[in-house]
Every structure is written in structure tokens, then in C-alpha cells.
Nucleic acid binder design. Structure first.
Lengths: 256, 256
DNA sequence: AATATCCGTTTGTCTGACAATGTGATATCA
DNA sequence: TGATATCACATTGTCAGACAAACGGATATT
């Protein structure tokens, strides 16, 4: 006999499903307040505790957020929400540095290529400023790591492609967080980093996608070489290279 | 005066934070059961309703799943969880077909390149079988769309890179779901699709990464051309091309 | 030893309650 | 009259306790 496993939904999950559906099909509009718990009890014919548990599922999906610690409003999940999820998934599933790097290498190349087309004055200035800051902080590894991360995020942002941002940001966060490992171990790496960023910047500023991508790829390859020279085993999980407490702080960095 | 906005945590969110932390730092081990609600009440000194709301947040993050509709077990979030999130984010934020395609193009090329190295016999056979099925279903657009989606997923899977899967799967799902639009409108598109898949398959089977990537890129470019010929405005949100009800069914397709 | 029965645990849901906080209406004052 | 202060209400967050259903394991039966 052929059969599907029997699945019974809990009521609170059904609450979630119905509300999610209503949001996706636009019956509950984004930026408008969610009905009050009492109203939902009425509509869905379950008690408040059940409604509340369903709402918690919505909340964690980013489909509702709170305006002013009070009334919940319907909202489109923002990128940081997905990032948190991916970061948890990557770390707990022990994805390796190699896997991460391999993907990120392509995404960064794409980002730098796309950035050429549309980059705005303010973003260009932010990039220049970022490189300047890197020079200033040359001797402070912790700060370098942050600024480096920001450099790449700025470029991805300049690509004006939200699908790219969505895929790239969480991976980038993890990858560059583990670059701490390299920078603290290899003195010369900071100078190479600055030189690479400068070349990438110049290419973008000159609206030269092919060179931007070329230098970015070199930069990424250099990153890998640095990791290995610093003694990183590229086939180990990233979790080995990133401090858990740093990790907790990472997600909030995304929200700005 | 300089100040940070005041943020007050609710208790249930604090429950979530503490449990998440415990899982990330390995104090609660993956595949072991979560403490019972009563135990958590004891540990965290809050009432059961509060504990339960916190657990719902965990549940939606994929950090706990249910074994047998009963006891919850701690778990690493699986890829489908992230996919759901990204899909919601992409659709509700009205990301365009162009953005999606641009990223997916690179990821598919990477996937086909990587697939060459490690592909296993069973996966190769599955690919061959997939192409055969496409031929058989040539005249059934709905089925073609599904099989096409599966073809690309198989290749991504063969890449043996979970970071790639994580980034690619949700985007692929959305992109190929909207290919329905092309296939139903352009009669000849199915034949081109089969030919392309065949070439990609041959390259992978011959362990020829460069050609695999080359044909994949051509295939992707062809996809775009097809969309435009079929009258799709590439700068419109994907939401316009995907039926909401299909969308709801999409995520469950991921879980297998 | 295999099967059937029973019982305690755990969860899902309900009921009801209350304090804190934000919101809008009303009253007060310049 | 218009701005401000006050108040009453609505809504949420949390508590307290209750109960039925389902599961898992222990015990009894064949």
C-alpha cells in the first residue's frame, strides 16, 4: 500500500498559515496594523493563547514587526531576517570555509561588475572613505575586519540588486568575520588588502566592470591564500574560525 | 545629548534568546530533545504560556523540530527553512525578475562547473533520467516547469556545496516558477530547453567544467530572451509572474 | 516472548484574570 | 480658541490553573 505520512496541524500553526496567506495575497496590507488579538480570536475562532502562539511564528518570519512596542504591523521581511536564518543554518550545519568562499567569490565578482553601472556619488565617496579608514586603522585588526566587511557590503549595495544582497550578505558576514583569523596572523595582509581595495575602487570609479571583477577575483583568491598561509584548514567548518560571541553580535550589525 | 533608543525585551523573546544561545554554543545539543516545558519554566522562572511563546520563535527559526508530533528536538535549521524566508522576502519586497535572473545566472554557472568535479553515478543517472522525462512530457507545460526546476536543482546538489544550495535554491524556485510564463507562450521553447539541458549534461558527464558553465550561461541567456519574447517585462516584480497558490505549494517541494 | 492494557507525562488548548502601557477623548487653562 | 493636562479605555504581556488527547513506557496477559 502506498500512503503519505499523516500530518496533523496544530491550531496555532493554522493561525500562522492563514495569516501568512492573507499577507501574501495582499488581504492584510503591508504597513497596516495587524488586527488585534481579540479580533483574530473572533475571526479564527480560537482562544487568545492560541492566536498569540501563531503570531509568534509570524513575528519570527518577519511578517509582522512592532511599531513602538505596542501594536504589531504587517511588514515585508527585511534582508537581515533572512541573514540571521542563513547564518544559523551555515554554522550549525558545519558548512566549510571552502564552500563559503567558493560561492562568495562569484557573488563578489558579480557585485563589483554590477556596481560599475549604477553607482551613486555618495556611495563612491563612502567607498573612498572606507579605504581611508582602513589605512588609518592599519594596526588594529579588530577594526580592520569590520571595515573590510563594510567595504564589500557597500559594493554589493551599489549593485542595486536585492537578490544579490540577500544571498551575499549573510555569507559575507561569516566569511569576513573569519578573516580575523588571517589578519591577526599575517602582518603583511593588511597592506595587500588596502592595495586590492584601492584597485577595485579605481575600476568601479572608472566604470570598468571587467577590471573591477578581475581585481575582485584576485582579491578573493588572495584571501584564500592568506587563510592557508595563516594555517587555516579550508575544509574545516567556519564555526571553527568565528567566535560565537562575535557571531551573536553579527546580526545586529546587519540591521543598520 | 547622545543616546541609544531604549529597547525593552519581552519575556518570551528573552526565552528565545537564551535558548538560541544555548543551542549555538552547544549546551543544548542537536538531535537531543528540548527540555520539557515544565523544566524550562523552572530554569527560566516564567510561566508556561511565556515559555511556549518563546518556543514558537525557536520553532519558526528551525532550531527545533518535532519528532512524532510530540517532544521537540533541537536541530540545525535545514535549507528549506531559509528558502521559505528568502522567498517571502523576495516576493513581498517586489524584487524584479531582472535582479533574480542576474544572480541566478552566476550561481547556475558556478553550480555546473562544480558539479563536474564530484558528480556521482546516481546523480548523473538522475540527470539523464530527468532529460528523458522532459522529452516525454514535452507537451505538458506544468510538468515541464517542475522537471526543469528539478534539473537545475540536481546540478546544484551535485556541486556538493551547501552554501551554494542555500543561496541558489530559493532563487531558483522563484525563477523557474515564473518560467511557466514563457513555456506556455512560446511553443519552441521546450525544444530549446531540452537541447540546452542535453549539452549541459554532456559537458558534466565529460567532466568539462568550462563547457558546462558555457552552455549553462547560454541556457540562462536564452531563458531571458524567451521571457522577453513572450512579453515579460523583466523589470517587473517576480510576483507578477508567479501564481500565489503555486507559491504556497513551492516550499513543500523543497522539503523532499 | 509477543501482545494487550494501563498509567503517568507532556503537550495543546481553553478559561479567566490583572497590571502596564499606549491612545484617544475630554476637560482645563492661557 | 488653541494648547495642554487628565482620564478612561483598549490592547498587550504575563500569570494562574485546568483538562483532554496522545504518546511512551511499564505491567499484565496469553
Amino acid at each position: 500500500m502506498k500512503a503519505r505520512p499523516i500530518v496533523v496541524q496544530t491550531s496555532y500553526r493554522e493561525v500562522f498559515n492563514q495569516l501568512e496567506d492573507a499577507i501574501l495575497r495582499g488581504e492584510l496590507k503591508i504597513d497596516e496594523p495587524l488586527p488585534t488579538e481579540a479580533e483574530l480570536c473572533d475571526i479564527l475562532q480560537v482562544k487568545r493563547s492560541t492566536v498569540r502562539e501563531g503570531i509568534r511564528l509570524l513575528e519570527q518570519s518577519g511578517l509582522v514587526t512592532r511599531n513602538s512596542a505596542r501594536r504589531l504591523v504587517v511588514s515585508a521581511p527585511d534582508a537581515s531576517r533572512s541573514s540571521e536564518n542563513i547564518i544559523r543554518s551555515v554554522t550549525l550545519n558545519k558548512v566549510t570555509l571552502e564552500e563559503l568562499w567558493r560561492v562568495q567569490r562569484e557573488l563578489e565578482a558579480l557585485a563589483s561588475r554590477l556596481a560599475c553601472d549604477n553607482i551613486s556619488k555618495p556611495l563612491l565617496e563612502a567607498l573612498a572613505d572606507n579605504i581611508e579608514q582602513t589605512r588609518v586603522s592599519r594596526d588594529d585588526p579588530k577594526t580592520i575586519v569590520k571595515i573590510d566587511m563594510e567595504f564589500h557590503r557597500l559594493i554589493a549595495h551599489a549593485s542595486n540588486n536585492r537578490a544579490l544582497t540577500l544571498a551575499r550578505d549573510p555569507l559575507g558576514l561569516l566569511l569576513y568575520a573569519s578573516s580575523d583569523f588571517v589578519i591577526t596572523r599575517l602582518a603583511q595582509s593588511t597592506d595587500r588588502l588596502i592595495a586590492a581595495h584601492q584597485r577595485i575602487y579605481d575600476s568601479i570609479a572608472a566604470n570598468d566592470p571587467e577590471n573591477a571583477a578581475k581585481w575582485m577575483l584576485k582579491h578573493m583568491d588572495d584571501f584564500k591564500r592568506g587563510c592557508i598561509m595563516a594555517g587555516a584548514v579550508f575544509d574545516d567548518p567556519i564555526l571553527d574560525f568565528v567566535d560565537i560571541d562575535v557571531l551573536s553580535g553579527l546580526t545586529e550589525a546587519l540591521r543598520k
